[in-house]
Amino acid sequence: MNESELPGVGTKYWKKLENGTTLTIIRHDSGRFEIAYSGQESEIPEYYSEVTEEEAIEIGSVLAQKVHQKIVEKMDILVKNLIIEWFKVPSGYESRTIGDIQIRKKTGVSVVAILREKETIPGPGPQDNILPQDVLLIVGKKESIEAFKRLFSN
């Protein structure tokens, strides 16, 4: 699928289908979607519709069912020895960076994301701070997760 950013509007996705027609989808920053289908000759769509976010999720999940099945099969193998967990940082915790705490070195756990009120930090680095009340998405073996929780309870 081709993709181009429309700053201030959203993102445009389009694909030339095997039959020569073009499918265009606009994902607006506001959450709504526009779907257009145009013929071989003209850019003006033969079919056009606005779609709400919920409808788009429903349509997308039907179209992606086969793909999901494959991903889930792969995930099963990967996840066997790992635990993915949400962890809320205690309110009395003193703010420090991931690097200072040496989370991975001390516990073997990886912090995958930090959720902070209206902000999300995906893939945080050693320079990123962990603040009280942050919600962390962590990945590790069972014993590592336990060590991680002990580290924060201390």
Partner: peptide, 17 residues
């Protein structure tokens, strides 16, 4: 205008942006 008039699917809107 692009959002209100539903122009986002057209190439001219992309060029304007």
């Amino acid at each position: 205008i692009i959002v209100d008039s539903k122009f986002a699917i057209y190439s001219f809107a992309e060029k304007a942006i």
